[in-house]
């Protein structure tokens, strides 16, 4: 079916990449959103520009969105997945989970890694390996599909953010109806 027949514009976007940001050494990488990019290297640069211009960060990971296998606890309860048999094709998966949906700032966080034949097996292994606290959602990603920001360039990528203050628009002086509100910064 052509785009005209479906009445939809053709998708000209580059592939989507999930972005994981680590705020400080010792803290887990958290899923903070996504970017469109041509490849992994480009995705990292876009991720830095879109997701780490202001907030604190020491590391970024990106993974193609189609490499992320995501499943909720509810889905697992109603329609359990059948893991592929564990065999010679076993690969390493990074495991992420979300354990809270209180307040708005909840994230799918990196918790560890498992070895499995496929993503369903990785979720099963993750549930056994990381039972507590109970997860609301699991993401598993083949480790070889994840690309990290260069460790040698941490200062160049993330330190300038510390000198750039984020200001709400109300921080800036404005003139409204003859009344001066705020002042020149």
């Amino acid at each position: 079916m052509t785009p005209a027949e479906t009445n939809a514009a053709p998708d000209t976007q580059w592939p989507r990449w999930e972005v994981f940001k680590q705020d400080a050494e010792g803290k887990p990488h958290q899923a903070v959103g996504s970017v469109h990019a041509a490849d992994a290297e480009h995705a990292l640069l876009m991720a830095r520009s879109v997701h780490a211009r202001r907030p604190a960060a020491v590391s970024l990971w990106v993974a193609p969105a189609d490499a992320v296998h995501a499943v909720t606890a509810e889905q697992l309860a109603t329609d359990p997945e059948t893991p592929a048999p564990f065999g010679a094709g076993a690969r390493r998966f990074l495991v992420f989970r979300k354990t809270s949906h209180r307040r708005s700032m909840t994230f799918v966080e990196h918790v560890g890694a498992v070895t499995a034949a496929g993503p369903e097996g990785a979720v099963a292994a993750a549930r056994e390996t990381y039972p507590e606290p109970p997860a609301l959602a699991w993401w598993v990603v083949p480790a070889d599909r994840v690309t990290a920001s260069p460790e040698a360039e941490v200062a160049a990528w993330f330190e300038p953010a510390g000198t750039k203050t984020y200001k709400q628009q109300s921080e800036y002086g404005t003139l409204a109806a003859g009344h001066r509100k705020g002042g020149r910064r």
Binding site: A38, H42, R48, A155, A156, W157, E159, P160, T163
Partner: peptide, 20 residues
């Protein structure tokens, strides 16, 4: 020293586009 830090990232971005 302050400006040099940011240039490392700028050069990564423009260098990537040159190659692409």
């Amino acid at each position: 020293a302050k400006a040099a830090k940011e240039e490392v990232f700028h050069l990564r971005h423009s260098g990537l586009w040159l190659r692409r």
